[in-house]
Amino acid sequence: MGKKRKQIEAEVVEPEEIPERPKRTLLGWKDKSQVPDKETDSKVFRNKEKYIDSVCAVVCRYRHLMLNMVSILPHCKKDNKVESKATKGATMNELVELRSCSSCLFFECRKHKDLYLWMAKCPNGPSVKFLVNAVYTMEELKLTGNHLKGSRPILTFSNNFDKDAHWKLLKEMIIQIFGTPKEHRKSKPYHDHVFVFSIVDDHIWFRNYQISDKGPREDREKMTLIEVGPRFCLNPIKIFGGSFGGPTLYENPFFVSPNQIRALEKRKKAGKFAKKVKAKTRRKMHELSNPLEPDEFADMWKE
């Protein structure tokens, strides 16, 4: 135990790469920064526990994705469905508080088709709404990788997360939500999987790989990665100042909601028929306005 504490001290000295900020709003962090020696690590990180739940009418695939997330994030507390649509923000905040969590992943399914993911820091942190694309659950992918349930993942980010303020914020939120707290009671001591968060085409792509040590233990070149799943792709829509509400800090300027897309498609199809009808009437009108002059040879062979 003593050895471990020593380690913590050593690490705390190391500066973090995140832009400096004089004051913390999160109590636990304040505590830690003030008295790092006395606080045990696990207590500090109790705050980081996460919370997943989903609104009604979740398609099975999305439910499976949610369950996958629960299985790969050992520090989560899964809650039941949330019914109230109107006062979603308030209920969610209340629930998170009841479960004494600090952040929340909230899967929201609309129209049995579109999956939205809310990622929120709960008492007063920002919240982000994503549209989830290209969802593939562990079950359907049939990938050969497997890792310990509860080992702490290594989070890798592509360097374009530092490109912009909102990406930076998202990265910080992802680190706090997806990273399993150190010495969490459900976590296991080894590191055998790695999460990939990569921004490609303004979407955050998520992958989960197992780190397998088929080669000799010391030779890290021999290390191989085997994908475990699930896969999904997050398209950020909005970032709000508060948790589940508050002022909008960011809006994706490229975003088109799937509803609009579907409407557009429908309109296209509808336009086809309207065009046909229009053409028909126009033809009729044209025929009426320019009647055929009688043919002079029409009765030639009648006699």
């Binding site: 705390v12 190391e14 890798t156």
Partner: peptide, 22 residues
Amino acid sequence: KLGDICWPENAGWIHGLSIDVN
């Protein structure tokens, strides 16, 4: 907001385990 939520500077890398890759 980023300043609000981010961890103190002296929190070690071991807590986040995050790596940036070019």
